[in-house]
């Protein structure tokens, strides 16, 4: 029988504690147990980036992260990145520049872009392209996503 020890970590700034079996990835924990559905499941295999969250500030694929290994860490999902009122500058830029179409990839891009701009407040176009090259978007051709990130970085 798999043990279902309690798992505790900081989620979007608040401590949480819940049971979690070992053979469970963070994405399932977030979406199914914690009902935080902003983080999306596009492939479950590390090949789309829709499931990206921040773990201790690093953009991380929640579908390839064992939930039990975030014990004691800080996890920020799209829900936590979003200010209580209004939108973050990255989010605002995505809206203004039409960087969302179907929107299914969007939370993952917001997470990646947020982490990028924290680490590198004024990235070049090439740095942006590289940084988002683990996030798949089938709708936009990336053009408006790149534009939005540049705008959020104050590049125009």
């Amino acid at each position: 029988m798999p043990s279902r020890d309690a798992l505790s970590f900081r989620l979007n700034g608040h401590p949480v504690e819940l049971a979690c079996e070992p053979a469970r990835v963070l994405l399932d924990l977030l979406r199914e147990d914690l009902r935080l559905t902003g983080t999306k499941r596009g492939c479950d295999l590390g090949t789309c980036g829709c499931c990206a969250v921040l773990v201790d500030g690093r953009p991380t694929l929640s579908c390839l992260t064992l939930a039990r290994l975030v014990e004691g860490r800080a996890v920020d999902t799209i829900e936590g990145i979003t200010p209580a009122q209004g939108l973050s500058p990255v989010q605002r830029a995505f809206v203004e520049h039409g960087a969302t179409q179907c929107g299914f990839c969007t939370p993952g891009f917001i997470v990646t872009a947020t982490a990028l701009l924290r680490a590198n407040p004024s990235p070049s176009r090439a740095e942006i392209e590289r940084a988002i090259s683990g996030n798949l978007c089938r709708c936009t051709g990336y053009a408006k996503i790149i534009e939005a990130i540049r705008a959020a970085a104050g590049a125009d």
């Binding site: 990255v90 039409g98 969302t100 929107g103 939370p107």
Partner: peptide, 13 residues
């Protein structure tokens, strides 16, 4: 801008 943009960028859609 898309009317549903704010919901999509926040994961609330």
């Amino acid at each position: 801008p898309y009317v549903d943009g704010p919901l999509k960028v926040t994961g609330r859609a």
